[in-house]
Design a protein around this nucleic acid. Structure first.
Length: 188
DNA sequence: CTAAGGATTTCT
DNA sequence: GAAATCCTTAGC
């Protein structure tokens, strides 16, 4: 078997909604652990009222305004890490949140171990302390690799979760998932 | 259903 | 400084 093909800068340099869709079916690798991405959400930049980028570049969000292909990991609700990938070009402030994965290798806890963004980080061992601001196109530990192709018809899309405060942006369908996969969040 | 939990941001 | 907010999960 040939070495896994790592996703390149070019892959991540596209708009967040394009990357979020294209990430479904790709392989997330963290050390010895790996799984197939089955749910993502796109955050389009400072104008997107649901995005952390809506306040501009702050101490927390500065990496969002760097080049695509870099990780953005933050803490939510005081206890859960969220794994995001910056997309687009330098300065655009776009990112994709990886919400769920199908465990493939090295992950304890069964099929549901990476169902949900907080559980995904725990299952893969992704932490803010060690994996924030990592270049996924260069890191030997944390990166994305090309998975088997997923037919477009199998990728569903709908509104993002937990962003009711985002006004006109709340209903915009920027969440993507593998249709019918058990690890995908239930819509609210 | 709701409590827990800590950081971030904005407001006074 | 203080307080409200928060892209969640586990446990009643």
């Amino acid at each position: 078997m040939s070495a896994a093909e790592r996703l390149s800068r070019r892959f991540f340099a596209r708009p967040a909604d394009v990357v979020a869709h294209a990430l479904i079916g790709q392989v997330l690798v963290c050390g010895e652990r790996a799984g197939i991405v089955v749910e993502t959400e796109a955050y389009l930049g400072p104008d997107d009222k649901a995005s952390h980028a809506r306040f501009g570049a702050t101490a927390r969000t500065s990496v969002m305004f760097g080049p695509g292909g870099v990780s953005y990991v933050y803490l939510i609700y005081g206890m859960y890490d969220m794994f995001n990938i910056v997309t687009g070009r330098d300065g655009e402030g776009q990112a994709v949140l990886v919400r769920a994965a199908h465990p493939e290798r090295g992950i304890a806890g069964g099929p549901a171990a990476a169902a949900g963004p907080g559980k995904l980080c725990r299952a893969f061992g992704i932490s803010r302390a060690r994996h924030h601001g990592v270049d996924l196109t260069a890191s030997p530990e944390l990166f994305l690799a090309r998975g088997s192709r997923v037919a477009r018809a199998r990728v569903a899309r709908g509104p993002r979760i937990g962003i009711d405060y985002a006004g006109e942006w709340a209903p915009v369908p920027l969440r993507f998932w593998l249709a019918g996969h058990p690890a995908v969040s239930r819509a609210r």
